[in-house]
Design a binder for these strands. Structure first.
Lengths: 365, 365
DNA sequence: CTGTTAGCGCCTTCAT
DNA sequence: ATGAAGGCGCTAACAG
């Protein structure tokens, strides 16, 4: 990196003070909006400031106040609609409190997450929202003990004494799958994305699991409640990749004893699953029912419209910001888990199990 | 707001120095990674720092260097996939240069944008990426003259002497519509979203227009080139709202002399358009061809797959960050416009104009 | 190689 | 109501 030249010197309070012919402290008082000053001097100072083009130096102010009016946010990837919405939720609430949001993408990489948290601590953000990718939480605890409150978003972390904002993934999944069993489905598969670091057969050791694990647990509970044996469970981990999900479903649906219902735990899996079903010429829901986790703008675009479990993503982000702001303002309430409600949104992709399971043939392709 | 308590005092360099039994400057040299120190003292300082849990105060450092290692980004809305991708592009390049990204959403509101820019200037960000919503650029010029380089993203601003990263909207639109005329379409409509502040009939006065205007111009040029008279132009402004776009298309397609091809200038318009077409039972492309601007994950999910004009959104963001970094490092090149290439992606939603225009009936609904 | 000493721009006593 | 002086935590000269 070429040695960056330092920026030009900006107009400072002493400059304004001199120009206005008042003391430095006086100028500071009117420009900082504190203390008391006579209307007359205020005018002169303001005029001088305008004339010189003065602009507050928030860095210097932070130096003294110890607050940066900034919230750090670590998510896997802002490009992911889920995180984009969550970030928006954080940003909106933050903005109302005069805080800005600094963003970091972890790409589900624990090391990147730790590096980001470290930076945020050094930058003295006022609070931190983290959708954890790393399985441990030492780095987060360190942030907290150095005075920066942390809120976990979307995913809980075992053993972490941190505020956590999540949905009841297990219950939501269980309820969704229960609809399927109620409709007579006995052979129900789960299609789920694992972390990209993963080899596709087992889940990566990481926190992103928590969400997935919970949803899988909910699925199992629903099957159990319907009297379906463990041996009838069908789980496909596909890696966080649409094409991968597609081929997994292609294989699954053209095999023996294929499922009559598919539950996808995230939108990447859903997209790949639908790709496969479309290519197979499967009729939804006549041949196979599909339920996705998380709503999406295209869920109502496709025909049949996709039934989903929707979560209040923006609210999750907003609540995280809220909690942080409260802590910044001195709250010392015990950290706790906040669980927001999901909603099962029945649309057209789910229906009764077919009386006869039609055989699906792989596309020429 | 409750008066925020100031944060606890953190471990500082003097603390570490004392603990290590060295002078303050020595400790600073080790911890700041500059100057030279003996291996022995370095060890002691590092040990002391680790023991006390020292962490650099980037705020104090910024105070001196004048750099915050931060880029401000103002977009309409991170929730919008387009901006999410652009932000990601900026963040990736920024991260490689050790910069973080601070985010602000303008919601296409010029005032919000100005407030955000103002904040960024006060915070002394090292550079600013703005997808302008405001039509004027005084606030941006002020940022520049106060030493903060600005890059315009996605939208140019008339008369602004700023680096600008865009695509050739006009050319791309013209090329896409030309495909339609080549396919024999003579009645081609444009469906376009205007700013939400708008009443739906005219475009709001703002910069977001630039993109739209250019695309409309391209559309007109293509028609003209195909010998289609101005009187045959069909333009529907729908407000930035999917349902609105849907009803506009519903009305348009059930009326007299309906179009045989639709060109949508953004994804909200595309979504609403497809909603309408689906509800009308229109066969695509037999009854009507559709071309969208901007690719999307669902463009290949629907059948027929959607033909689109795709733009390198991440690259746009990355280039913006690049330019900024170069300027931070001292470049004084004249600001210029950088135009990235788009690609027309033919898929299945476009085809020859129908020989006989089938009448479409409004759905019972 | 190391320690001392000024500030960076602002807020904050403390006097006046 | 206003001014003078000290310090937030760090870097940068300058000596030694």
């Amino acid at each position: 990196m070429p040695n960056a030249p330092r920026p030009p010197r900006r107009v400072t309070i002493p400059d304004v003070a001199r120009h206005a012919g008042v003391g430095q402290a006086t100028a500071a008082r009117v420009l900082g909006g504190y203390g008391s000053t006579s209307a007359a001097t205020r005018e002169r100072v303001l005029a001088a400031a305008a004339e010189l083009g003065y602009s507050t130096n928030a860095v210097a102010r932070s130096m003294i106040s110890g607050r940066t009016h900034t919230l750090g946010v670590v998510v896997a990837d802002v490009e992911n609609a889920y995180f984009a919405r969550a970030v928006r939720g954080v940003a909106d609430v933050a903005a109302k409190a005069g805080l800005q949001v600094v963003l970091a993408n972890s790409d589900e990489d624990g090391e990147k997450e730790k590096a980001a948290v470290q930076m945020f601590v050094e930058r003295r953000v006022d609070g931190l929202v983290v959708a954890p990718a790393a399985a441990d939480h030492e780095h987060l605890d360190r942030a907290v003990s150095s005075g920066i409150p942390v809120v976990l978003l979307d995913r809980a972390l075992a053993g972490a004494d941190l505020d956590t904002v999540v949905v009841d993934n297990r219950g939501a999944a269980k309820a969704a799958v229960a609809r399927l069993t109620d409709d007579g489905h006995r052979r129900i598969a789960v299609i789920t994305s694992a972390s990209p670091a993963d080899d596709g057969t087992t889940l990566a050791p990481g926190a992103d699991i928590w969400t997935t694990t919970e949803r899988l647990t909910g699925y199992r509970q629903a099957l159990r409640a319907a009297g379906i044996p463990r041996s009838a469970e069908v789980v496909r981990h596909t890696g966080y990749d649409r094409a991968w999900a597609r081929s997994a479903v292609l294989e699954l649906m053209t095999g023996e004893d294929r499922p009559t219902a598919l539950f996808t735990t995230d939108n990447v899996a859903t997209l790949g699953t639908l790709d496969a079903l479309l290519d197979l010429g499967a009729r939804i829901p006549a041949d196979v029912s599909v339920v996705g986790f998380d709503d999406a703008e295209w869920a109502t675009l496709i025909r049949p419209r996709l039934s989903v479990v929707s979560q209040p993503v923006q609210e999750l982000g907003g609540l995280a910001a809220d909690i942080l702001i409260r802590r910044v303002n001195g709250s010392t309430a015990r950290p706790r888990r906040h669980t927001l409600r999901t909603a099962y949104v029945p649309r057209e992709s789910t229906g009764p199990a077919p009386a006869r399971v039609r055989r699906l043939r792989a596309p020429r392709q």
